[in-house]
Amino acid sequence: MFFPYDSAALTPQAQVQLEPLGRALQGRALSAHRFLIGGHTDAAGEPGYNRKLSLARARAVRAHLIEVYGVAPERLLAYGWGQGRPKDPARPLSGLNRRVEVALVAPQAWLSPEYRLALMTTPAYWESLEPAEESACSDLLRDPRAVALQDLDGLAAAPTALPCHNW
């Protein structure tokens, strides 16, 4: 679903678009699965602001799925990618880049041993194991795929090492 410029509010159209997902998440077939809700922005504005805005968009979708469809909160991970993963890279200010995407989080058992080894060698994985200081990035701003070897999502396959900033 897409968002208006500089907004994290769900539009009526976005709420309609979320209905099939909400109904599917209520069903038995998906009841054991977790999902990553990834928020994105266009390239307008400062990267730090865009990270917060993208996280607010992901949280808005997550809250809607929890409140309207009764999805268990622990099944939905919210993450803000900011402007770093445009849907339309040729047009960084395009409205197509202001969106939220939802991806299945696959259990570790689905990962090959080669991929697990590659994951463990990324700096983001090791940094995620260290406790965050009070002034460090919040856990919600860390790449959720790098937190542990338990999960992997379908949003570009490998963890992204992200700089830690205080915004």
Rank of each mutant, 00 (worst) to 15 (best):
M1T: 12
M1E: 12
Y5A: 09
Y5G: 05
A8L: 06
A8F: 07
A9G: 13
L10T: 08
T11N: 08
P12Y: 08
A14D: 02
V16G: 10
E19H: 11
L21F: 10
G22Q: 02
R23S: 11
L25M: 09
L25H: 06
R28N: 10
S31N: 12
A32K: 13
R34M: 06
R34I: 10
F35M: 02
I37D: 09
D42C: 04
D42W: 05
D42I: 01
E46Y: 05
E46K: 00
N50M: 02
K52H: 06
S54K: 04
S54T: 01
A60P: 10
V61R: 03
L65W: 05
I66F: 09
E67W: 00
V68C: 12
V68L: 00
A72S: 13
P73K: 09
R75P: 11
R75M: 06
L76C: 05
P86A: 05
P89E: 03
P89H: 03
P89L: 04
A90Y: 04
A90P: 05
R91G: 06
R91H: 14
P92A: 04
S94E: 03
N97C: 07
R99C: 03
V100L: 03
V100N: 05
V102R: 08
V105T: 12
S112N: 12
E114Q: 15
L119P: 08
T122L: 13
T122Q: 10
P123F: 00
P123N: 04
P123L: 02
Y125L: 07
Y125M: 07
E127N: 00
E127D: 10
S128W: 07
S128E: 07
L129S: 07
E130R: 15
E130Y: 14
A132R: 14
A132P: 07
E133V: 02
E134Y: 08
E134S: 12
A136F: 05
A136S: 12
S138Y: 08
D139M: 15
P144L: 06
R145S: 14
R145A: 11
A148I: 07
A148H: 14
L152W: 00
G154M: 11
A157H: 14
A158K: 10
L162V: 01
N166R: 14
N166C: 11
W167K: 01
W167G: 07
